[in-house]
Simulated scan of single mutants.
Amino acid sequence: MAGDATHRGLDPQGFIEREGSLGRVPRAFRPVVASARDRLLGLFGARLHSAYLYGSIPRGTARVGRSDLDLLVALREEPADADRAGVRVLGEAVDKEFPQIDGVGTLLYGRARLLSAAETYDMGWFVACMCTPLLGEDLAEYLPRYRPDSLLARETNGDLALLLPAWRRRIAEAGGSGNSEAALRPLVRFMSRHLVRTGFTLVMPRWNGWTSDLAEMAEAFGAYYPQRAEQMRAVARRGREPAGDAAVLRSYVEDLGPWLAQEYTRVHGVKSARDD
């Protein structure tokens, strides 16, 4: 299992093992996965290259009524705005139909981008190690194997400083809505998970392993940054049980986020620039 002191999500050669499988999908979520699969085929048809599950559902740790369905879709060409709108409508329909999930998130890319040199240690790694094949040809066959090193750390999460201004805008926009608690709750969940994963990948090369368990990530981080350990544990708890608290989000963009971005740059450097 990931996190075992002698294993920590690595194979005997020290490469990160792929997470999840269709066989681990809990019984309660199998109709959700089947519906999403069929809807993706109907939406994209021959334009669909491949589709994947990721997150708690293929890892077998999803909780009924609490967990979301996470999908990654690769098209044969770069997606257009209409394609993005299509997956949003698809996600809303699946979420409405199945009360056992709490939302649907879909990442949408073109095949060429996922296999590009620029994405090899970012979205390429994500597909190869974090995603479970659902439909089509598995892009992992064209990607390298990955170690938990500083290059991977930099290219996966070395852009937090660039993200923080957009986070501040999203918080301001959500806080101004009529139902702020409901609007802020998804942001708390998303930003909490992102910060915990960034904290973990900051120490990942020293910890020498991989895990997607938020609590375990926070503990790994805290072993190297004890002054921030309890803070990160609280962030991990909010990643699993979020509440729409504006003060929490402000602390993320005014305290933990800026500190973490600065420390990440000091240790691993800045993520390579992308065209977009």
Rank of each mutant, 00 (worst) to 15 (best):
A2I: 14
H7G: 10
Q13A: 15
G14Y: 00
F15E: 10
F15D: 14
E17L: 02
S21E: 00
G23Q: 14
V25E: 04
A28Y: 04
V32C: 07
V33S: 09
S35W: 10
G42W: 06
L53T: 02
G55P: 13
S56V: 08
R59W: 01
A62I: 00
S67Q: 04
R76L: 01
A80I: 03
A85Q: 13
R88F: 11
V89S: 15
Q100E: 12
Q100F: 01
I101P: 03
G103P: 04
G103T: 08
L108H: 01
G110K: 09
M123R: 15
W125S: 07
C129S: 12
T132F: 04
G136R: 13
E137M: 09
L139W: 06
E141C: 06
Y146I: 04
P148M: 11
L151Q: 11
A153K: 12
R154Y: 09
E155M: 15
T156W: 10
G158D: 11
L162Q: 15
R169V: 13
I171S: 09
G176N: 02
N179P: 01
N179D: 15
L187G: 03
M191H: 14
V196M: 05
G199I: 13
G199M: 11
M204C: 12
G209K: 09
G209Q: 08
S212F: 08
D213L: 02
D213E: 15
A218P: 11
F221N: 00
A223L: 05
Y224H: 12
Y224G: 02
R228H: 15
G239V: 10
G239F: 02
A246K: 04
R250F: 12
V253P: 05
L256G: 03
W259C: 00
E263R: 15
T265S: 02
T265N: 05
G269S: 01
G269C: 05
S272E: 15
